[in-house]
């Protein structure tokens, strides 16, 4: 990538130009920040999928006009500060407990939209019990599951979803499935439970996949309104920093390695 970055002087001039005689008018703007996404710098690493995933949730909330009726649950992990970016009421759960916290919220406020946003360590390791039982009870909320095959926040340790042979700081020789177990496909696992209604795997590595991920999130909120049961949208994504790649390389690696193991598409589709 050789994109020329603007100098501070050019940047200032550009701002002035916009202010003086804006070429960006309400009529011709085709892309802008969506209202529910807070206008602030994110702490995520360049190229990380979290930012896109956050934006998709914010866009869906705005399109469905449910900001005033939505409560989100943030996990522990890289997205521990998700509540700094979404302009909705939120609740920061203890590590792995988001599904239990969401259960508590949804049970006392059944008319509200509730979702959790959880990484693979949070959801599929320490939170396995809460995840499975919330799904088994068919708790009527959405779980957005970010799977990048690694612990991001703590610095690149092996996750339950780390691929066989994949290197991490705690599997420096690559994940040995004999001693470390195989990657846990928890999405397929919870799709077996009668309480789940819609279970799908998406990605945000390409424009087409981003659009599909957004459609899955939107459908899940619509099912929630109909009290259909638990919906889970897995988003397979990258972790450039801990995969030790640049963003472009990490997306390529995701396509070559993650997606063959974690194939995209609906795992459990509503029957009607």
């Amino acid at each position: 990538m050789n994109e020329k970055t603007m100098t501070a002087e050019e940047d200032l001039r550009f701002e002035q130009m916009l202010a003086e005689e804006s070429v960006c008018t309400k009529e011709n703007i085709v892309f802008d920040r969506t209202d529910t996404l807070i206008d602030t710098n994110m702490h995520y690493c360049p190229g990380c999928g979290h930012g896109v995933a956050h934006r998709l949730i914010a866009e869906v909330i705005d399109e469905l006009d449910i900001q005033k009726d939505t409560i989100g649950v943030a996990p522990v992990g890289c997205s521990v500060l998700a509540y700094n970016y979404l302009n909705i009421d939120m609740n920061g759960a203890a590590h792995g407990r988001a599904a239990a916290v969401a259960t508590g919220i949804k049970r006392v406020l059944p008319e509200k939209y509730v979702f959790t946003y959880q990484g693979d360590g949070d959801l599929a390791a320490i939170g396995t019990g809460e995840t499975i039982h919330a799904c088994n009870r068919g708790e009527n909320f959405l779980i957005v599951f970010i799977n990048n095959g690694i612990y991001g926040m703590t610095g690149g340790q092996m996750a339950p979803t780390t691929l066989p042979g994949m290197k991490s700081t705690t599997s420096p020789e690559g994940r040995d499935i004999v001693t470390m177990g195989s990657p846990l496909k928890i999405t397929e696992l919870i799709a077996q439970l009668p309480g789940t209604y819609y279970v799908t795997r998406t990605a945000v590595n390409s424009p087409v996949n981003v659009r599909k991920a957004k459609a899955a999130i939107k459908k899940s909120f619509e099912y929630q309104k109909l009290n259909k049961g638990t919906c889970l949208v897995e988003i397979v994504t990258n972790c450039p920093s801990n995969w030790k790649m640049n963003p472009v390389e990490s997306n390529k690696w995701l396509e070559d390695n993650m997606l063959p193991f974690y194939p995209l598409g609906d795992i459990k589709k509503p029957s009607n």
Partner: peptide, 16 residues
Amino acid sequence: ESEIASINMVYGAAGT
């Protein structure tokens, strides 16, 4: 499903 889940359900519900 456990006391761990119970107390975190309390945390979520009490937060409302």
